[in-house]
């Protein structure tokens, strides 16, 4: 059935983790309402997680039969530095989003990642970060009135002052 003949580094571990995860979910699904009734809230979750356990086991045994890719290294082929960096950055960004507020957190995130990935000058990265942030802010906050996390910036006060100036002018 499988067209794949070799496995990547880490694939065996990943497939094994999926088996463990599926068994955990099957147990949690059983706790919802047990084997009480075909129409109980736990019926479909148990069916789905049982399917996960079975298919994850099959996928795992398939990886046992496959020989590894030649010369494959986990931190080169599967999780290169740059991917790990980006994952870390975006997680830090999401944490800081509520603390610092949307504007500051996004500006920092964009500046650092643009500077690292595009390897252009600091001024160029900062300029692009400010422009793209401004566009997103206008679309989401001003047009669609989605109140992004304000954090330490008193945004609503600033907007009120600006709009008052606008009305006076």
């Amino acid at each position: 059935m499988s067209s794949q003949t070799t496995r990547y580094p880490g694939e065996r571990l990943f497939s094994f983790l999926l088996v463990v995860f599926s068994i955990f979910l099957l147990w949690r699904a059983y706790l919802i309402s047990g084997f009480s009734d075909l129409s109980s809230p736990g019926a479909v979750p148990m069916g789905a997680s049982a399917m996960m356990v079975i298919s994850a086991c099959i996928a795992f045994t398939q990886t046992l039969k496959q020989p590894p890719v030649e010369g494959g290294r986990f931190f080169y082929h599967c999780l290169p530095m740059v991917v790990g960096f980006m994952m870390a950055m975006v997680i830090i960004y999401a944490v800081l989003l509520e603390q610092l507020g949307f504007i500051i957190a996004s500006l920092l995130f964009l500046f650092i990642t643009l500077r690292t990935l595009s390897q252009r000058s600091a001024l160029w990265s900062l300029g692009l970060a400010v422009i793209s942030l401004a566009i997103i802010y206008i679309i989401f906050r001003l047009i669609f009135q989605i109140v992004l996390p304000e954090g330490v910036v008193p945004e609503r006060e600033i907007l009120a002052v600006v709009s008052r100036l606008w009305e006076d002018a």
């Binding site: 059935m1 499988s2 067209s3 794949q4 999926l18 599926s22 979910l25 699904a29 479909v44 979750p45 789905a48 997680s49 399917m51 996960m52 079975i54 298919s55 994850a56 099959i58 996928a59 398939q62």
Partner: peptide, 14 residues
């Protein structure tokens, strides 16, 4: 692999 597809589908349902 069909097993991998089924796993993904069941995960989605869950």
């Amino acid at each position: 692999s069909l097993a991998k597809g089924l796993f993904a589908g069941a995960l989605g349902v869950l």
